[in-house]
Amino acid sequence: MADIPEDDLAESRAALAPLLEATAAILPWLAKPKPPRFAPRLNERWISACQRLHQAWQERHGHTSDVRPAVYNLYAIALETADADCLRLGEALASATDRLDDETPPVRLIAALSASIETLREPDGLEHEAFGERARHFAARLENAAAAGEIGERSTVLDQLFVDEAREQLELLRDALAALPPDAYVLTTEALKLAQQAETLEIWGIMHLARQLADCITRHGSELDQPAVRAELTDLLRGLEAGINAVVI
């Protein structure tokens, strides 16, 4: 290849000079981190409050419930942010939580609260890039769920889908119990998953049986291979199977 004349090189350099200078000028701005929208300490408190709410929600079936104080603690922080999305989400959470006092809270309400509280666990908290969009989405969902009345007639289609999936989970539970040693992780995970699915569809009997199974596994975690414990778990599985079979007759 022939050498490029010096004059052509000089002209090319001169033509590219403005572009190179402009690129060099914007590089520091591209590398500069985006300034936070909220004070770091405020965001830390928000994240901590969300974690507390999530724990309270997971433990809400005990003798005492910390869900309401956890929600209002989060709402107080939302007021400090003076952010419209935060305020709307806080108000929606508070209104939805009030409906938990109903004798049988609507399934849509439980599902909306579960999804909202799970999403709030994002480690970036208020600074998550999609926080505003998510806050608006879940606020609207909570508002609609809190305003809705009780669900009337049960859906036989949903019940059948639940039964089909629950039977598959029963097989997983039996296999985990039959393993040597029994697989405590699979037993606990599948039992709790089954309880949550039953709660979503308001099949309270199955929910309580599945939680009873999970509690038994936790209580005897280091003794699952003992004959007496195996027998107890086997009886619980039989009761759970009978309950599942009775959902759709």
Rank of each mutant, 00 (worst) to 15 (best):
E171L: 08
E133H: 08
D175C: 08
V157M: 01
T119M: 10
I151N: 07
L142G: 02
Q169D: 14
L113Q: 11
A130L: 14
A166D: 04
L172N: 14
L180T: 13
E153T: 15
I151Y: 10
P181C: 08
R154F: 03
L120T: 07
F131R: 14
V157L: 15
I151L: 15
E143Y: 02
L126R: 03
H128S: 13
D175S: 13
S114M: 07
G152Q: 03
L113T: 01
L170R: 12
A184G: 04
A179W: 06
I151C: 01
A145K: 03
A178I: 05
Y185K: 15
L142D: 03
A184F: 01
L173P: 12
S116D: 03
A147H: 05
G125V: 12
E127Y: 06
V157Y: 09
A140Y: 03
A130C: 04
R134I: 00
A139I: 02
A145L: 05
D175I: 04
E129L: 10
Q160T: 09
A184N: 00
A112F: 02
L177T: 02
E165A: 14
A145S: 10
E118L: 05
L180P: 08
A176D: 12
L161P: 00
A148W: 00
Q169W: 12
A179N: 11
R136C: 01
P182R: 07
S114T: 13
D175Q: 15
G152N: 05
F131N: 09
T156W: 09
H128Q: 10
A146G: 09
H128R: 15
A135Q: 02
D159Y: 02
A184S: 10
L126F: 05
L172M: 15
A112E: 01
V163L: 03
G149K: 12
E118M: 06
L113G: 02
L173S: 10
R121L: 13
E153W: 07
E122T: 03
A115C: 01
F162Q: 08
A145M: 03
D159Q: 14
R121F: 00
Q160D: 11
G125E: 08
F131D: 01
E143C: 06
S114Q: 15
L173D: 10
E129D: 11
A176P: 07
E127K: 09
F162Y: 14
A176L: 08
R134C: 01
E150K: 08
Q160A: 01
S155C: 06
V157G: 03
I117C: 04
I151D: 13
D164G: 06
A145H: 07
A147M: 05
F138I: 01
P123R: 03
G125R: 10
A140T: 07
A179S: 15
R141E: 05
A139L: 02
L113N: 06
E129G: 04
E133Y: 04
A135R: 02
R174V: 07
G132W: 05
A166F: 08
L126P: 01
E150R: 04
E150C: 01
R134Y: 06
E122G: 06
A166Y: 04
A179G: 06
E171A: 11
R174I: 05
E133F: 06
A112I: 01
E168M: 14
F131T: 04
A140R: 07
L170Y: 07
N144A: 15
L120C: 13
I151R: 15
G149A: 14
F131M: 15
L142I: 00
A146F: 04
V163K: 11
L170I: 13
P181R: 10
P123F: 02
D183F: 06
G149H: 11
